[in-house]
Design a protein around this nucleic acid. Sequence first.
DNA 1: ATGAAAGCGCTAACAG
DNA 2: CTGTTAGCGCTTTCAT
Lengths: 333, 333
Amino acid sequence: MIGRVKRTVTIDDVAREAKVSTSTVSYVLSGKRPISAPTRKRVEQAIAELGYRPHAGARALASSRTNTIALMVPLRVGVNVHVIMEFVGGVVARARDFSHDVLLLTQDDVSGLDRVTSGSIVDALVMMDVEADDPRVPVVAAADQPSVLIGLPADPEGLSCVDLDFEAAGRLAVRHLAAAGHQEIGLIGAPPEVMARHTSYADRLLRGFRTQAELAGVAIRVEPCEASPAGGRAAVDRLLAKAPGTTGLLVHNEGALPHVLARLAETGRQPDVVALCPADVAAAQTVPLAHIELPAEAIGRTAVDMVMARLEGEVPAETRLLAPALIQPRPAS
Amino acid sequence: MIGRVKRTVTIDDVAREAKVSTSTVSYVLSGKRPISAPTRKRVEQAIAELGYRPHAGARALASSRTNTIALMVPLRVGVNVHVIMEFVGGVVARARDFSHDVLLLTQDDVSGLDRVTSGSIVDALVMMDVEADDPRVPVVAAADQPSVLIGLPADPEGLSCVDLDFEAAGRLAVRHLAAAGHQEIGLIGAPPEVMARHTSYADRLLRGFRTQAELAGVAIRVEPCEASPAGGRAAVDRLLAKAPGTTGLLVHNEGALPHVLARLAETGRQPDVVALCPADVAAAQTVPLAHIELPAEAIGRTAVDMVMARLEGEVPAETRLLAPALIQPRPAS
DNA sequence: ATGAAAGCGCTAACAG
DNA sequence: CTGTTAGCGCTTTCAT
C-alpha cells in the first residue's frame, strides 16, 4: 500500500489480478463467448475489487460503437416546453435501458449534425420537431448511422419516423364534437411561426381537422395562437368575433391552454372543449377537461426502441403513428 | 474511382494526401506547434477534400480528453420547466464555444454519476438543482474531473458553485415592498416537496426574505405552492385567509404565477406583486409586472466558463452568486 | 474454454 | 519547422 500512486485501472490490471488473459476479461464483460463459472467469478471479483471501469474511448476505437445516441432538441423556449421535457425524459430513460448515454444537440446547431453524422461520436440519432420540408432530413438520410425522426417530413427518404397520428387526432376531435351536436367548431392551435414553418404536427392536425369537418358537414374556424396568457385570450376573442356561433373547440397549445379556458369562462360562453396535450397538463387545469392524449414520453421511448432495432439488425425503416385516444374527464364528484 | 469502397478517412490518409507526416496533421488541427503557412494550407486542403473527421474515441484514448461535459438535469416535470430549458440552453451554447458537447444525465440516475466520474466519459460535470444536503455532492467531490454545482450545498467540499444570490433576492424583494409602504407581505414560493427537500434556492430565498423582514419590521406570511393553476389559486386563498392584511407579495413559482395573478384579480385585491422569474416569463403575463430576474441562461453559461477554467489551469474552486436585479414594468402606454 | 497478439486512429514525446 | 514512433485501453481474430 505504501507509495501506491492512484492510476486508472485497466483491463490488464483486472486480468493480472484474476490470473486470466485480457481477452477473457473482455469476454466476460461482453458475454460474447462462454466462460466457465469459476473463471467468471474470479474476473468479476477482480473487477469489483479494483473498481475497474472500461475506458469509453478505447472501447469506441476498438469496436466502433460509442454507446451513445444523439438527441436533437428544439431548445428555443416555446409552446411545448412541457412536452419536450417529457419526451426527452422518455428518450434518456429508454436509452439507459440499452446502456446508452444521450448527447444533447440543439435544433439550430447545424454543425452539430455534421459532427455527429461523421460517425465516431454517436451510434445513432433522434431528431425532434421535424418540419414538413426539413433541410436536416437529407443530411441525416445520407449519414452512416441510423436515425429516427419525431414528426413526419414530406419525404422521409428512407428514415424511420414516430409520432402521434395528429391527422387522426384532428379527425377524432371533430367526430367527438360533431357527435355532441356542435355545428360550428374551432381550433386554437400552434403559434403563427410554427404554422408558418409547417412544422409537421401542426400541418397534420389541421389536415385531419379539415377533412373530417367537411365530411361531418360542420363549419370550422382556425386560429393560430401565441403561447402566452395574452396570446390565449386574444385567440379566443378573435375566434369568437369571427365565428360567434362556435360551440365546440379543440385547443392544441399547452402554454395558452389555461388562459384560453379562463377567457372562455369570462365571456360566459361555455363551449365544449377538447385539449390536445399530455395527461398531466389536462389534469392540472382548474376544470375537468376532455383531452386527446399526447403521449410524449411514450413517443420518446418508442423512438429509442426503433433506433436500437436498426442498430442491432437489418430491419427496414418504418413509420409509426400512434393512434390518438380521447379521454373524458372524470365526472365531478 | 472504380471499385473504391467507402471507408472512413483517417489522419494518415490526410497526411499522405498532403505529403506530410501524421503528426503535422495532428498539430495543424490542435495548433499546439507552429506550422508554416504553405504546409498548413496543404493540410487544410487535404482535410477538406477528403472530408476528414477525427475519430472521437481515438482522440480520447490518446489525449485523455473527451471534449464532452456531463450535465445533470432534473428531468422530472415541475415548477421550473421554463427555467431549466433556458439554463440547459446556456450550457449547451457555451460548451460549444469551447468545442465541447453535452452529455445529458438525469437527476435521479445515480449510476450515471458513477459512470461519469469514472473518468473516461466526460471531462467535467455540471450539476443542477443541488440540495442543501445533497448526497451527490461528496461523490462528485471525490471524482477526478472538475465539477460545478448550480445551487449552494451546505458543504461544497471544495467544489465550485454558481447561482443567483437568492438570499439577496429575498432581501431585495422585502426592501422593495417595505419601501412602497407595505406592512404585511407574503411569499408564494416553491411546491411543498421542493421546500421539504431543502432545495438550495428555496431555502436561501426564504432566509433572505425572513432576515430582511425582521430588519424592516414587516410581518410576513409564507405559502408553499403547487405549480398548477389550482395550486396557484389555492395558495392565494390560503394566504389571504391567514393574513388578510397582506398588501405586498413576492411570487417565486413560474408555473403558478399566471394563476396567482388571476386569482388576485378575482378577489379584487390588488397587492403589489414582485415575481422572481426569467424576464420573458414576466413579460408574458397579462399585466405589467415588477420582477427580480432569474438569469437562467447566464447561470448556465457561467457554469461552463467556470468548469472550463478549472479544466485548463489550476484555478481554485470558487462560489459565484449573481446579484439580483429588480426590474420595474414599463409604464403602461 | 482460454490465450496471444494485431490493430482501432490519434497524440505527444523524442529526434532532428 | 517537420518527421518517427511509442503507446493510449480495448476488441477480436486466430490459435490452441
